[in-house]
Design a protein around this nucleic acid. Structure first.
Ligand SMILES: [Zn+2]
Ligand SMILES: [Zn+2]
Ligand SMILES: [Zn+2]
Ligand SMILES: [Zn+2]
Lengths: 155, 155
DNA sequence: GGCTTAATGTTATATTATAACGTCCGGTTC
DNA sequence: GAACCGGACGTTATAATATAACATTAAGCC
């Protein structure tokens, strides 16, 4: 839930994500098969969202439906999220929690960080409610500069 | 800025949008050519976002670059907006105003309505700021049910 | 083991978007 | 007016993203 510093111990991010995914799948009676696990691992190779065809290439011998099916599974069980602006996917650090789909996207380093801010969600629900609109799903994608990249830009 | 009722005088929406576009282009010294105007008019055929290839077909004899170039122009001058979730485009009712890119998308009738809510933007800036992230562009796409469709669903 | 269903493989194709280059047209300069 | 210039458009090809349809394999169950 914090912005990942540039040189943190990312193996730890991956290990935690995979452990959380195992747990979540067990809890839901879902099968984290080999392909699904490999795709999840590849998504977690970095905090920057990755596209389906990049995953496909990384997987090696596979066809598009293979990776899209794995992505569908991971999305359905809240293990990854889709970044609409980028047609790309990023790991979810807190599967099982209520997710609002709020993301900060650094235009410099590409990192995506998930927010889960009730005030944002409430502000949207309020504004929508004033027009008689009922919100059932929310996508927030904020582009900008993360702390590290901001420092690097001399600003 | 209100949700368009199902049977409002939509010719008026179109006329106003085209007039506003003319004015905005004049103000900016931009050329609203025939193709660009026709695409804008087609985008405004309804309040539901429309895809590039649907526009292409409606245009008749034209190739993809033609419509994409027109869309790029209209986007650049704030006359339309792109809905990322849908890979589709919708007219902007208030060109020239500061736009936050906030949309309510009715999953029933498809209508997209633009919000311009400072509280939403502020909530995002605040949440981002707490993590040291500076927001430069914001996309908010809320899916749900508009007033008319809510009434129709018997809920 | 045989049955059933979920998962994956495979091929083809749909959908969305852009690259590259040629042509035309309106205005400017001389 | 001829030469020039730059923006808009035409045209062809192709890139990038995503899904349909059906065959095959693998798990889970009895
Ligand atoms: Zn990490
Ligand atoms: Zn960054
Ligand atoms: Zn209207
Ligand atoms: Zn509606």
């Amino acid at each position: 839930m914090n912005f990942p510093p540039p040189h943190h111990d990312h193996h730890r991010c991956i290990a935690q994500a995979l452990a959380a995914a195992e747990e979540e799948c067990r809890r839901r009676g879902a099968r984290l098969t080999d392909i699904r696990r490999r795709v999840l691992e590849l998504v977690w190779r970095s905090h920057a969202p990755i596209g389906a065809y990049a995953l496909l290439e990384a997987l090696g011998k596979a066809a598009p439906p293979t990776v899209y099916r794995a992505l569908d599974f991971l999305l359905a069980h809240g293990l990854i999220h889709r970044i609409e602006k980028l047609n790309a996917f990023v790991g979810c650090a807190h599967p099982g929690h209520a997710q609002a789909g709020q993301f900060l996207l650094c235009r410099q380093c590409g990192a995506a960080t998930e927010l889960n801010d009730d005030d944002i969600e409430q502000a949207v629900r309020d504004a929508a409610g004033r027009m008689g609109f009922v919100v059932t799903a929310l996508t927030v994608e904020a582009e900008g500069l993360c702390p590290s990249c901001r420092a690097g830009e001399g600003g």
